[in-house]
Write a protein that binds this DNA or RNA. Structure first.
Lengths: 175, 175
DNA sequence: CACAATTCAATTGTGCGCAATTGAAAATCG
DNA sequence: CGATTTTCAATTGCGCACAATTGAATTGTG
């Protein structure tokens, strides 16, 4: 009758969901001086590693689609930290470049990981604690991969015979 | 120069964020037959455990505020699975009751946890795997607690001397 | 080469999350 | 008791997430 498996406390998904939101809330005060939100911070992290990438590849890295990224990047552009530029070789693509302000922001962000690690209860000097942190990170990554792999396995068999209507060609506007 | 600490792959927050979203995506096809979203599912889980609770207590359980819950609960009410009723003893409170349709939905939900555990790569028969699952859940819960405890410690010192203007009293509408 | 299919970013629409405010009801305090 | 403060749900506004569609550019194929 009581169905233990349906208890909220038993759900790994809820623990994940809840911990993730708590983590994002913890970042907020640290990101406020930079004037960006948490998802925007993730985009900046990706761009600080590699610049001039397309919306597509950025989306693959962060598991976000253009529906999320396009407006987010437009806001970052309005803030003056990135530049969105239609590719010359392939007009479908839009390359995202950091501005100098965007590159400078990286210096202000340097202290964030350590500050957050402390907040999350990890002693930055403690080698063993850092090892556990890395372990948790890997566990989560592995979990995500397993879930996503299964999704593909389920989605793929349905891949099939769609027939799209042809479309006329008009020159794409500058943006 | 390369600042390893700012690498996206190094971020526990991103692993959490990404895994959590993957998990929610995995739930979606299982929830579609019930006609509810993932956050609505969490609310139903809470209500199946305890009925007739206030929006406030539901919010504490799920770490969500009225800004999120009120419209969500209105949608669940429109679906006919819950009833929202202004408390008689305390007119500020709104009690959330399951309808019979809401209680029946629990039967359809019974298979979900097992189905999801498999998808997440946990063999339901394997005691050791289940132990690891529980361990991960506890690690996440502990992490969340640590983060939230620190938030309170930071927020509290700022608690101080606000002076609100008085307000007139009008009878609250039925809903 | 024509034309069908695919790829890519943008757009549309819905549902969260959450900060901040509002309005009413209850609790507290002088 | 009357005024102040606190509590509670609702509302407002903004920024994600994400499914679905659109429009244009490219690729693939006969």
């Amino acid at each position: 009758m009581s169905d233990d498996a349906l208890r909220l406390d038993q759900q790994l998904c809820f623990a994940l969901y809840s911990a993730s939101r708590a983590m994002i809330r913890a970042y907020q005060p640290l990101l406020e001086p930079l004037g960006i939100t948490y998802p925007q911070y993730l985009v900046m992290l990706a761009l600080w590693e590699r610049d001039g990438v397309t919306v597509k590849s950025l989306g693959e890295r962060l598991a976000l689609d253009s529906g999320t990224l396009t407006p987010l990047l437009q806001r970052l552009e309005a803030q003056g930290v990135v530049r969105r530029q239609r590719s010359d070789e392939d007009e479908r693509k839009v390359e995202i470049h950091l501005t100098s302000a965007g590159r400078q922001m990286r210096n202000k962000a340097r202290s964030i990981p350590t500050a957050l690690a402390c907040r999350a209860g990890f002693d930055v000097e403690d080698k063993d604690a850092l090892r556990k942190l890395g372990q948790l990170r890997e566990t989560l990554r592995a979990l995500e991969q397993t879930i996503e792999r299964d999704r593909e396995a389920i989605a793929e068999p349905a891949a099939a015979t769609a027939t799209a209507a042809p479309r006329a060609a008009k020159k794409r506007a500058a943006r």
